[in-house]
Nucleic acid binder design. Structure first.
Lengths: 195, 195
DNA sequence: AAGATAAATGAATGTTCATTCACTTATAAA
DNA sequence: TTTATAAGTGAATGAACATTCATTTATCTT
């Protein structure tokens, strides 16, 4: 029996994300992907039921890596300040390590294809929610709806990450998100949220 | 000479945005669009050079409407608190009035097609930058890089708008962004940014 | 070494796509 | 009315698409 070549599947997955980021969902064709991954078009169909399945599987994998990286060293019982700072660092590091992923995720999420099962997301969401709730119960935080917290706690970070990733600059010079600047913004955010 | 029927162009534009939001860039075909707009495929090509031109024109129009709505009543000389609050209200109202637009914009921006000329954007960016700089010169604000300000000033608003637009809920109940909640978040943000 | 099995393939299939073209229709000017 | 002109059309075109299939190839078991 011939054995499965895992490198082939890897190549397909990687090239697919690369292509989607470069040329959009619109531009991703199975034949071009096959060529880019050095594989026959038919081979793709050994690993993925069809184009939609490929896209969904990519999304699920990318999301899993994100969850793993984000929860690294994290515990919902941490103090609010420590936990949120760890989240900021984890998320920043993740997006720097996998620069393609954030673009892919954004495209995927803003496209109406999303149909994926929420296996890990639930675990992730649960950890985040219990983190916030613990902090509120401990009386560390001013009382807001969860969404308002979430927005103030993470909104700025993602806007900063976008600036960091972007080739363009807001004012004349290109913005680079150092840990120092991140800390600066973080302290403003935490001071605003804490009691 | 036969006269141009502006309703036809309008129909094409509206249906295109509708379709893109519903079915993604991927799913938008010229023939389906023609059918949806009650028009011959060839008619589309009277108003738009080709598919790409159609998409770019849509983007430019949508962006122009956004700029107009956002700058309504706005003056870069306003006090920081008044100006930012007006921005929050303007942007929120805009996105509620044109719920398709934000999804379309997001898809467009996260797709690698963007190629549009920056005519109005420049005017818009200039207004925003001078607004921030004025506030800093007047000594109203703590001194941060522009991007850090921007991130703290708008990041939370957009996260809130996304929650408001989303069908899904973060905790059990669906979140609705009332002016009261917006004001609540706004005050936290302003307090964090002001000297 | 032979046989069995699943991986891998290139070429083929039928479909859908963006775009064009020869033609018809409506209207402004004469 | 007639004529000129541009709007509007349905059908056609060739390219590109997702997917399948008859074969070939590699590797495990015996």
């Amino acid at each position: 029996m011939r054995v499965r070549d895992e490198l082939k599947e890897q190549a397909i997955r990687e090239k697919a994300i690369e292509m989607i980021v470069k040329v959009g969902f619109d531009g991703l064709s199975m034949q071009k992907l096959a060529k880019a991954a050095n594989v026959s078009p038919a081979t793709i169909y050994l690993y993925f039921k069809n184009r939609e399945d490929l896209l969904n599987q990519l999304y699920m994998t990318v999301d899993e890596v994100f969850t793993d990286n984000t929860l690294k060293g994290f515990d919902p019982e941490m103090s609010f300040e420590d936990g949120l700072w760890l989240q900021w660092k984890n998320r920043f590091n993740h997006h720097v390590k996998y620069p393609h992923h954030i673009l892919f995720m954004e495209q995927f999420r803003s496209s109406p294809l999303v149909n994926h099962k929420d296996i890990k997301i639930t675990k992730f969401k649960a950890a985040m929610e219990s983190f916030f709730c613990n902090a509120i119960e401990r009386g560390e935080l001013r009382e807001f709806p969860l969404e308002v917290f979430w927005a103030i706690a993470y909104g700025p970070l993602y806007t900063l990450i976008k600036f960091h990733m972007s080739k363009k600059s807001l004012a004349g010079r290109k913005f680079s998100l150092t840990e120092e600047r991140m800390r600066e913004a973080f302290e403003v955010v935490v001071r605003a949220l804490k009691k």
